[in-house]
Design a protein around this nucleic acid. Structure first.
Length: 263
DNA sequence: ACCTAAACCTGGGCGC
DNA sequence: TGCGCCCAGGTTTAGG
């Protein structure tokens, strides 16, 4: 599932490919991925516009147009932005210079939107920016009784962490996913802060985790699935202590942890 | 204000 | 070979 490292990998691929190009035509194969506006309006708003930048906020890609307007792309779980089509293409952007960018999504959870202004996304700070400090993390944990793993997934508090990196950062921190947020000690908060940043940076270095659907814009898999410590390893031995990795469900999502290493 | 959970989707993997 | 069943989960929405 595309989380911060995967979305950033795609951004780094797509930016030099589209920057300075004009959208010549848009072919909408399945209109359900276009949200908040009709297919006809969407095409009208974007065709003829020049793309000047591609930014990322949490898991959103923001295509900045020369007019100052924006198109956002959210890949959700099976969304892809590709230089060559695959079996699940839903929208084709034909660009100047005889290029094309393909939006593919097998499960149609992905979303493409258009905004007349900078998108008003309700997102907490990106964990790789300087706004994500130990003090900030301490502040949002202090007042909340929700379970720490569920809190890490709240995009309005911290933007960009998904199921895989929430699970992996908690394992690396030795913190049980069901601990209440306000029960973490200062030492644990500091450790968690460090491990969140480390695991996201490492995963970005490997061009993301391709446990199932994720591929970059060239259709290539990332490499971080080989470095996962607990995610997807139900009943397998913990790499640290050899006890069996457990799988539970939290907030409707599979959650993996080592009952011995994570307290 | 805060938290929980259903709904949205469909390809892939599994058992039979 | 093919059918039915279940699973994957980010975000939005509804409800407590």
């Amino acid at each position: 599932m595309p989380e911060l490292p995967e979305v950033e990998t795609v951004r780094l691929d797509v930016l030099p490919f589209v920057r300075g190009r004009t959208v010549k035509n848009i072919e909408v194969i399945d209109h359900r991925v276009i949200r908040g506006i009709s297919e006809k309006q969407f095409r009208k708003k974007i065709i003829g516009q020049k793309i000047v930048d591609v930014e990322r906020r949490a898991k959103y890609l923001l295509f900045k147009l020369k007019s100052g307007k924006y198109m956002t792309v959210h890949l959700a779980m099976t969304g892809r932005l590709l230089f060559s089509p695959d079996d699940y293409v839903k929208v084709i952007f034909n660009l100047s210079g005889n290029k094309a960018l393909y939006f593919s999504d097998a499960r149609l959870f992905g979303k493409i939107r258009f905004y007349d202004h900078y998108p008003p996304l309700k997102l907490g700070p990106d964990p790789l920016t300087k706004d994500f400090t130990v003090e900030f993390l301490r502040k949002i944990l202090k007042s909340r009784k929700t379970k720490i793993k569920n809190l890490l997934l709240e995009q309005k508090l911290i933007g960009g962490i998904g199921n895989i990196y929430a699970i992996e950062s908690l394992f690396r921190s030795g913190i049980h996913p069901q601990r209440l947020a306000n029960s973490l000690t200062d030492v644990e908060i500091k450790k968690l802060h460090k491990e969140i940043r480390k695991v996201l940076l490492e995963a970005l270095g490997y061009r993301g985790t391709s446990d199932s659907w994720f591929v970059d814009a060239r259709g290539k898999k990332g490499g971080f699935q080989l470095r996962l410590k607990v995610y997807g390893r139900k009943d397998e031995p913990c790499f640290k202590c050899k006890s069996k990795v457990k799988r539970i469900v939290m907030g409707q999502r599979g959650t993996y942890f080592c009952p011995k290493c994570q307290k």
